[in-house]
Amino acid sequence: MEKNFTPEQIEMINRIVFAHIDRMNEKAAEIVEETERAAHHELQENGIDMTDFSPANKSFLMVTLIQNLIDRVHGGDMTVAQRLITMEAKRLNVSVNE
């Protein structure tokens, strides 16, 4: 069943949804930073020198999060997984056929 929204309703929906998406992204960034700090601290407490290398750095943590979210979205459906990866590659203007 298709919903017919007025332009005003569409504007309100977009405003509300994207405001929540912005807050979600802020929380995710905070969680990544907290995770990095906590992992770094625990590694140091266990005698691992973190001066030159951080195994729980922000980039690694964000990629891990992205992988987990993509897996949740496609749920094992490789057609959906391929579509997701293709859409993201197009968004970034990169080739996945190299």
Rank of each mutant, 00 (worst) to 15 (best):
Q44D: 06
K90I: 04
M24T: 06
H20R: 11
T79A: 14
A39Y: 09
T35V: 01
M24Y: 08
V80H: 13
H20Q: 13
K27T: 07
E2H: 06
H20D: 11
S54H: 14
K58C: 03
L92N: 15
I10E: 15
L92F: 04
G47D: 00
P7A: 10
E33C: 01
A81S: 07
V94W: 02
A29C: 03
A89W: 01
D71W: 03
G75Y: 07
E2Y: 09
S59P: 00
D22L: 04
T79C: 01
V94R: 01
M78P: 00
R37L: 05
T64K: 09
E36Q: 09
E33G: 00
H40N: 08
N46A: 09
T79D: 15
M12H: 13
M78R: 12
L43V: 02
N25S: 04
D71N: 13
A19Y: 12
S59G: 06
F5R: 14
H74F: 07
A29K: 09
A39K: 11
A89C: 05
K3R: 13
H40C: 04
F5C: 02
M1S: 15
V73I: 15
E26A: 05
D77M: 03
I21F: 08
N25Q: 11
D49E: 06
S54K: 14
S95E: 08
R72T: 13
I31M: 05
T79I: 14
V32T: 11
D49T: 05
A81P: 00
T79P: 00
L65C: 06
D52Y: 10
P55N: 04
N25I: 09
S54P: 00
K27E: 14
K3A: 07
S59I: 04
H74D: 14
N4T: 05
A56F: 15
K90P: 01
G75S: 06
E33V: 04
N25G: 02
T51S: 12
N93M: 00
V32Q: 08
V73R: 15
A38K: 07
N25L: 10
V94M: 05
S95I: 05
H74R: 03
D22K: 13
D52G: 10
N57F: 06
D71C: 06
N68M: 12
F60Q: 11
M78I: 15
F5I: 07
R91S: 09
